[in-house]
Amino acid sequence: MSRPPTFLPPDCAGSRVLQTSRGEFAVLDATPPDGAAVTGTALLVPGYTGSKEDFIAMLQPLTDAGYRAVAVDGRGQHETPGPDEAHAYAREELARDVLAQARALDSGPVHLLGHSLGGQISRAAVLIDATPFRTLTLMSSGPAAVTPAQQERIRLLGDALAVMSLDEVWEAMKALEPPEETDTGGEELRRRWLRHHPLQLVTTGRQLTVEPDRVAELVAVRPPLPLHVLSGERDDTWPVPLLDEMAERLGAVRTVIDGAEHSPNTDRPVATSAAVAAFWDRH
């Protein structure tokens, strides 16, 4: 779970609802100051158990670099409600949401960035239709299923959600984590957790444990989309050597953020923003 340094957006960003052909999505919409040139627009897609707030610390650096950055809650995440049907959280459904979000920004092709689960959803969106996108950045997001250890954690969470409330599960997770983890943003993180739809967590968690390797499909996208694989120097969800290999197979730009782990967006947001903006500047 990413731990945002704060849930309060910077002055450059506003909270609003993005109206799309597939419904309404809560977003943080950050723009460069009035009068400043806008180099491009980026759509930021969060990971499993995450939300748009995972990108808060990147918004100011990205707007300083000249980019409009829009971070979104997917359906069933935090401030975007979700339905009570599991099929609504299937990978293709979430991918089509991303396509609708990109088109609703009404800015031409956007730079797409997905963190972890958000990277696999973003990949699926590109495989359906790459035309709404200028580039794709996969942040700490691997080629296929997560590691066996993470698969077991997700299985245990799914089993718990079948018999416990979100609040009860939160207390159980808190009891199992090291004290330094539970002290970070505790109440704000808890409020976010309670607003997730349990079916979203169960369904997308299961997807992370069975995701097929779709690297060859992404390589075959025509015309080719500029690709960027970014991660921390350590990652317990997809090992860094696996991400290195994926980048090579994709012919992608590869960035490793020193001092970061699975969430470079919160671990080292300034360095991560600089790397992402530098990649976007080339395109």
Rank of each mutant, 00 (worst) to 15 (best):
M164S: 15
S263D: 10
G205Q: 05
A57V: 12
A277Q: 02
P148R: 08
L230T: 11
T20Q: 05
I56P: 04
S231N: 09
T255I: 10
D73V: 10
G232A: 05
L8M: 15
R96P: 03
L176Q: 15
G47Q: 02
V276H: 00
A30D: 07
D34N: 12
E152R: 14
T39H: 13
G205P: 04
P109G: 04
A57W: 00
G108D: 12
H87D: 13
D244F: 02
H197Q: 09
E261S: 15
M246L: 07
T31D: 09
A149H: 11
P33W: 01
L230N: 02
L94K: 08
F55G: 00
W193H: 11
T203E: 12
Q60S: 15
T137V: 11
A100W: 05
T63E: 05
G142Q: 04
V270T: 14
W193V: 11
T204F: 00
H197V: 06
S21F: 06
D64V: 07
M1R: 10
D73L: 02
V253H: 06
Q200K: 05
T41V: 05
V276M: 05
W238A: 04
Q101P: 04
V270S: 12
T255D: 13
H87G: 11
D167H: 07
E211N: 09
P226A: 09
T147M: 00
V210N: 00
A65L: 08
D236M: 05
A247E: 07
Q151H: 06
A42W: 00
L176E: 15
E24Y: 04
L138D: 09
A125Y: 03
A149V: 14
T131L: 07
T39P: 05
A57Y: 01
D235I: 06
K174T: 14
E85S: 03
T20S: 05
A271E: 14
T6H: 04
L136F: 01
E248D: 13
T63H: 01
G158Q: 10
R16P: 07
A65M: 10
L166H: 04
P4S: 04
L18D: 12
T6S: 13
P224K: 06
S231T: 14
H78A: 14
T182G: 07
E217D: 15
G40V: 03
L199F: 01
I154D: 01
A274M: 12
H87M: 10
S15C: 13
E181P: 08
Q200N: 11
D64W: 01
R268L: 08
P46S: 10
I257F: 01
S21R: 15
W238N: 08
V110Y: 00
T63Q: 04
T182R: 05
V240A: 02
A162G: 15
G232L: 07
S116V: 11
L208A: 03
P148W: 06
G40E: 03
G82L: 01
T39G: 08
R155Y: 03
E245L: 06
A124G: 12
D11P: 13
D213G: 04
L176T: 15
A247Q: 03
A124Q: 14
V276P: 00
K174F: 04
H228M: 10
F25M: 09
L161Y: 00
V110G: 01
P239G: 08
E217I: 15
L250F: 03
T135G: 03
D64H: 05
P109Y: 00
A37W: 12
V221A: 03
M164V: 12
R3I: 15
A162W: 11
D236S: 08
T41D: 03
